[in-house]
Simulated scan of single mutants.
Amino acid sequence: MVEPDNLVLEYLREIRGDMAKMSDRISTMSAEMTTVRQYLAGLVTLVEHDHSDIAVIKTRLDRIEKRLDLVD
């Protein structure tokens, strides 16, 4: 028969082990989230650059249409 004091210690050891595993998982997830944030920031930068390029092309196209008298 297991003594009550030892039983409590065993449960506490299991809880401590589980907490350590959870802490490791949280650290890993935190690092992964940082990576995802950096990736998304890069995507946002690319999209903003593309919008800028499209605006320049639109301006040039408008100018060409005016020169060729294609404007409605």
Results as ranks from 00 to 15, higher is better:
1 M>C: 12
1 M>Y: 06
1 M>T: 04
1 M>P: 03
3 E>R: 13
4 P>Y: 14
6 N>V: 13
7 L>D: 11
7 L>C: 14
7 L>H: 15
7 L>A: 13
7 L>P: 00
8 V>I: 14
8 V>L: 05
8 V>F: 05
9 L>G: 04
9 L>Y: 06
11 Y>I: 13
12 L>N: 13
12 L>M: 15
13 R>D: 06
13 R>Y: 08
13 R>P: 00
14 E>C: 11
15 I>E: 01
15 I>G: 02
16 R>E: 10
17 G>P: 01
17 G>L: 11
18 D>W: 09
19 M>L: 14
19 M>G: 01
19 M>N: 07
19 M>S: 03
20 A>R: 04
20 A>D: 03
20 A>C: 05
21 K>F: 05
21 K>S: 15
22 M>W: 02
22 M>S: 04
22 M>I: 13
22 M>H: 08
23 S>C: 08
23 S>G: 13
24 D>C: 12
24 D>F: 10
24 D>E: 15
28 T>A: 07
30 S>G: 02
30 S>N: 03
30 S>L: 04
30 S>A: 04
31 A>G: 09
32 E>W: 01
32 E>H: 12
33 M>I: 03
33 M>S: 05
33 M>P: 00
34 T>W: 02
34 T>N: 04
34 T>P: 00
35 T>N: 04
36 V>M: 10
37 R>K: 14
38 Q>E: 09
38 Q>C: 11
38 Q>P: 05
40 L>I: 11
41 A>Y: 07
41 A>W: 09
43 L>H: 12
43 L>A: 10
44 V>G: 02
44 V>H: 02
45 T>W: 00
46 L>M: 10
47 V>Y: 14
48 E>G: 00
48 E>F: 02
49 H>G: 02
49 H>P: 01
50 D>K: 14
50 D>T: 12
51 H>P: 02
51 H>I: 14
51 H>K: 13
52 S>V: 05
52 S>D: 08
53 D>A: 09
54 I>C: 07
54 I>V: 15
56 V>G: 01
56 V>K: 04
56 V>M: 03
56 V>F: 03
58 K>G: 11
58 K>H: 14
59 T>R: 11
60 R>Q: 09
60 R>Y: 05
61 L>W: 00
62 D>C: 02
62 D>Q: 15
62 D>G: 05
63 R>S: 14
65 E>F: 12
65 E>S: 07
65 E>G: 04
65 E>N: 10
67 R>C: 02
67 R>H: 04
69 D>F: 06
71 V>Y: 05
72 D>R: 13
